[in-house]
Design a protein around this nucleic acid. Structure first.
Length: 546
RNA sequence: GGGGAGCUAGCUCAAUCGGUAGAGCAUCGGCCUUUUAAGCCGCAGGUUCAGGGUUCAAGUCCCUGGCUCCCUACCA
């Protein structure tokens, strides 16, 4: 973008529509140009972060410089006519730094202007711009800066009388103009709507927001590093799918013009990742953006990120070991960044222990301990569900299959009995609820056959499931065709018959473990964010006409 | 889906029973070379979310709509 474009585009005809606070800022930008500056800056190769610059402060050099200045002053006082050459030598070995940041505070003392700059590393770094020590243009610039402007300053690191490490500018130049009036400097920006819709303002004003997104990025990198260490390969599979599968959810639908096809955005990558196992890749994972055309709340966004992985010749036990290691790895990183103990990481009102081995309990045991009877007692389950006012039939009046009633009770009562502060694996779900999972050997003839599946719960949130994958094409086909009584549309998408996937299994998929983890929810846990919106830079918002 | 709260200056918030829309910060003008949310003096800043209604009079009461947040429900 050229200077001409940014400084002249449409100013003339728009001037009357522009808010006076913006107009004043435009005028200050013109004045900076008048001082010979390019208001939008240029390449800088020698910049230090503000935090690095603070670290460069050298106390002994600063003391020596101050002492030499004092000695010269005293010599002059003793002999006002002393020659310059007879004064004690000026000592100045103070480190020079070159820094950039956004102006968050400005205190103009007349011939000395104090600026506080902010960048990713430091919320408030002080720069002093004095008429005596700074280039004249830079000094004049300091006086006409607006809060929010980005500037580049260079000068020695020193300490003020009040003990604040400060860059004492020898030069100052603009790097970008902020034409938008800033939020209140102390109360800040609290309006959640602006925070989410104009996240760039939120990030500038509330450094904590920026820190969450930086930690999110580091956590994603840590996950990749961990999986890399286990020889998993990251892959990419289709987002646009003709037949969305791998989960129970309503998809977003779209149309492809070139091939005149109806397509859906994926609800899960599962069925494609398994095809890669069929093809011969032994360990794969994908950081998958999934799309589900459903409600929005504190833990649901229409697009969200899951990590799914598949390991040939693994099973759901292998997956439990990986998941526990991975979550602990993330917690360890987050703990060190946040300065909290791995065994005591706050999340809302809870303190979560990621250090101890994660708890394990079977679906049946958890059901029994919280409800007081067995999952096989379907009559009692139905009575209990009705007593609790739970749904036991679909909207069109069809009575739920027994296993759906049991699962209603499980979700309503048993899941909630899990200690939120202890990461907990719930093992061995009913096979009927897990159409892509291998049945658990020896339970086929039980009244409630089980499948080799677990779900991980932390802080009351479901973090993700894992399976021993079903690799028998005939069982898979019958699972796809199995319909439970009272099942709803969303649930049935799980069972949409995918002929090509069955064909792939016929080619032969090695036995495998598969795992899916909700990355957004994990980032919520790791950053102590209570809403998924706080870990997504740009959460879904209703559109507004302006 | 159900319930609750809210929307006033650029931002954060006031405005009593329905009776002249205010403050702080930011901005603008003036002073100031060690300030820390700098300070002192002065000025200015409004389609009270939108539309309709009641009234002599509406930010305030009523209706409709928009957007946001919270609770709840749903949601692998």
């Amino acid at each position: 973008m050229t200077e001409q474009q940014t400084t002249q585009s449409g100013d003339a005809e728009r001037v009357e529509d522009i808010h006076h606070l913006e107009q004043q800022r435009r005028e200050n930008r013109e004045k900076a140009i008048g001082l010979g500056f390019s208001p939008y800056g240029h390449r800088e190769d020698e910049l230090l972060s503000l935090n690095e610059a603070s670290g460069r402060y050298d106390e002994s050099a600063d003391e020596a410089n101050k002492a030499s200045l004092q000695a010269r002053k005293e010599s002059k006082r003793a002999d006002p006519d002393i020659d310059e050459g007879d004064l004690p030598a000026l000592v100045d070995d103070r480190p020079i730094v070159r820094v950039a940041g956004r102006v968050v505070l400005q205190r103009d003392n007349g011939n000395l202007v104090w600026l506080n700059l902010r960048d990713h590393s430091n919320d408030s770094f002080q720069v002093a711009v004095s008429k005596r020590d700074c280039e004249l243009a830079g000094f004049k610039l300091a006086k006409l800066l607006d809060l929010g402007d980005i500037v580049v300053a260079e000068g020695p690191m020193t300490m003020t009388r009040t003990g604040e490490v400060t860059c004492w500018a020898s030069s100052l130049s603009p790097a970008s103009k902020c034409l938008v009036p800033p939020p209140e400097k102390h109360a800040g920006l609290t309006n959640t709507e602006i925070r989410y819709r104009q996240r760039y303002i939120d990030m500038w004003v509330n450094p904590e927001t920026t820190r969450v997104f930086m930690l999110r990025s580091k956590l994603m990198r840590a996950v990749r590093g961990y999986l890399d260490g286990l020889d998993f390969l990251e892959v990419e599979t289709p987002v646009l799918q003709t037949q969305p599968g791998g989960a129970a959810a309503r998809p977003f639908r779209t149309h492809m013009n070139a091939l005149d096809m109806e397509l859906s955005l994926r609800i899960a990558p599962e069925l494609y990742l398994k095809r890669l196992l069929v093809g011969g890749m032994p360990r794969v994972y994908e950081m998958s953006r999934n799309f589900r055309n459903e409600g929005v709340d504190k833990s649901h966004n229409p697009e969200f990120t899951s990590m799914e992985l598949y390991q040939a010749f693994g099973n759901y036990e292998t997956m439990r070991e990986i998941a526990e290691g991975l979550v602990r790895e993330m917690a360890s990183l987050a703990g060190s960044e946040r300065g909290v103990e791995l065994s005591a990481m706050e999340f809302g009102d809870w303190v979560i222990d990621y250090e101890s081995p994660f708890a394990q309990i079977t679906y049946a045991e958890l059901f029994r301990s919280s409800l007081g009877f067995e999952i096989s007692d379907s009559e009692r389950a139905r009575a209990e569900a009705e007593k609790r006012g739970l749904k036991t039939k679909s909207e069109d009046g069809v009575a739920f299959d027994d296993i759906l009633v049991i699962n209603e009770l499980f979700e309503e009562v048993a899941e909630r009995s899990i200690d939120p502060s202890k990461p907990t694996f719930v093992l061995d779900y009913p096979a009927a609820l897990s159409p892509l999972t291998r049945p658990k050997a020896g339970t086929e003839n039980d009244s409630v056959p089980l499948a080799e599946r677990w779900d991980l719960f932390i802080a009351g949130m479901e973090i993700g499931p894992a399976y021993t994958e079903l690799n028998d094409p005939d069982i898979q086909e019958s699972k796809f065709r199995e319909q439970l009584a009272g099942i709803d549309d969303e649930e049935s998408t799980f069972r949409t018959f995918d002929a090509d996937f069955v064909e792939a299994l016929k080619v032969g998929m090695p036995p495998a473990g598969g795992l899916g983890l909700g990355m957004d929810r994990l980032v919520m846990l790791m950053t102590n964010s209570r809403s998924i919106r706080d870990v997504l830079p740009f959460p879904m918002m209703r559109s507004v006409e302006s």
